[in-house]
Measured scan of single mutants.
Amino acid sequence: TGEEYIAVGDSTAQQVGDLTFKKGEILLVIEKKPDGWWIAKDAKGNEGLVPRTYLEPYS
C-alpha cells in the first residue's frame, strides 16, 4: 500500500536502485525518506528511488 503520485517530469535512473519514469506516469510511493528521495513502484511493478521534486499528489 502507499500513496499515488503523478510524475511532473521525466527522470532517468542515475545509479542502481533508481527508478526511471516518464512525465504523466502514476507512481505508488511506498516510503518517504527525509533526504528527498522516495521509494516508489510503477505500474509494471518496478521499484526504486525517485526524486520527490518530480512528483505531485494524484487525485
Rank of each mutant, 00 (worst) to 15 (best):
45 G>Q: 03
34 P>W: 08
3 E>D: 09
3 E>H: 08
23 K>L: 06
55 L>N: 00
37 W>Q: 08
45 G>W: 02
47 E>S: 10
54 Y>G: 06
39 I>M: 10
24 G>R: 02
15 Q>H: 13
58 Y>K: 08
44 K>M: 12
9 G>R: 15
48 G>E: 01
25 E>Q: 12
59 S>T: 12
49 L>E: 05
29 V>K: 00
12 T>L: 12
54 Y>N: 07
6 I>D: 01
14 Q>Y: 12
20 T>D: 07
2 G>W: 14
14 Q>F: 12
3 E>I: 10
9 G>P: 01
16 V>Y: 10
44 K>W: 14
57 P>Y: 06
5 Y>R: 01
42 D>P: 01
35 D>W: 04
15 Q>G: 14
22 K>E: 05
13 A>D: 10
8 V>L: 13
18 D>C: 15
59 S>R: 10
55 L>P: 01
27 L>I: 07
10 D>V: 04
4 E>Q: 14
27 L>A: 00
47 E>I: 15
22 K>V: 08
39 I>L: 14
48 G>H: 03
58 Y>M: 10
9 G>H: 15
26 I>W: 06
5 Y>N: 01
33 K>A: 08
33 K>R: 14
3 E>L: 09
14 Q>L: 13
21 F>A: 00
16 V>L: 11
38 W>R: 00
34 P>N: 11
3 E>K: 08
1 T>V: 13
56 E>D: 05
17 G>S: 07
52 R>F: 14
20 T>I: 10
9 G>K: 15
22 K>W: 07
27 L>W: 01
59 S>A: 11
41 K>T: 07
18 D>P: 06
38 W>P: 00
32 K>L: 03
15 Q>S: 12
59 S>C: 13
6 I>A: 04
18 D>L: 15
52 R>E: 14
58 Y>T: 07
53 T>I: 13
35 D>H: 06
46 N>M: 07
51 P>A: 11
37 W>P: 05
43 A>E: 09
30 I>H: 03
2 G>L: 11
4 E>H: 14
27 L>V: 06
32 K>P: 03
59 S>Q: 12
23 K>A: 08
30 I>V: 08
53 T>S: 14
12 T>E: 12
46 N>Y: 06
42 D>N: 12
55 L>C: 04
52 R>H: 14
27 L>K: 00
53 T>Y: 12
39 I>A: 04
33 K>T: 08
17 G>Y: 07
53 T>M: 11
31 E>M: 13
40 A>W: 02
23 K>Q: 07
56 E>H: 09
53 T>D: 14
40 A>M: 14
4 E>N: 09
30 I>D: 00
49 L>Q: 09
51 P>K: 13
45 G>S: 03
1 T>E: 13
45 G>T: 01
19 L>C: 03
46 N>E: 07
8 V>R: 09
46 N>W: 04
16 V>I: 12
4 E>P: 14
6 I>V: 09
29 V>C: 02
49 L>H: 08
2 G>C: 14
45 G>E: 03
5 Y>D: 00
56 E>G: 04
37 W>L: 10
46 N>P: 00
18 D>S: 15
30 I>M: 09
53 T>V: 11
29 V>F: 01
2 G>I: 10
17 G>E: 05
48 G>T: 02
12 T>Q: 12
5 Y>H: 05
49 L>A: 09
31 E>Y: 13
48 G>I: 03
13 A>Y: 09
31 E>W: 11
22 K>F: 09
29 V>M: 02
56 E>K: 12
11 S>I: 14
29 V>R: 00
13 A>I: 08
30 I>L: 12
1 T>L: 13
16 V>W: 10
32 K>T: 04
44 K>C: 14
6 I>M: 08
38 W>K: 00
17 G>N: 06
55 L>K: 02
51 P>W: 15
11 S>C: 15
36 G>W: 03
19 L>Y: 02
10 D>K: 04
48 G>V: 04
55 L>T: 01
2 G>P: 12
43 A>K: 11
21 F>I: 07
9 G>V: 15
28 L>C: 10
29 V>W: 01
42 D>L: 03
23 K>M: 08
34 P>M: 10
48 G>W: 05
1 T>F: 13
43 A>D: 08
48 G>S: 02
41 K>I: 14
54 Y>E: 08
1 T>R: 13
9 G>A: 15
3 E>R: 10
24 G>H: 04
20 T>M: 09
5 Y>P: 01
37 W>T: 09
13 A>E: 09
43 A>C: 10
38 W>D: 00
51 P>H: 15
31 E>N: 10
23 K>F: 06
32 K>M: 07
27 L>Q: 00
4 E>A: 14
28 L>I: 12
21 F>R: 00
20 T>C: 10
14 Q>A: 12
26 I>Q: 03
5 Y>E: 00
36 G>D: 05
11 S>P: 04
57 P>F: 07
19 L>Q: 00
36 G>N: 05
51 P>N: 15
16 V>A: 12
31 E>I: 10
38 W>Y: 06
56 E>W: 08
15 Q>M: 11
58 Y>D: 03
51 P>F: 15
15 Q>C: 14
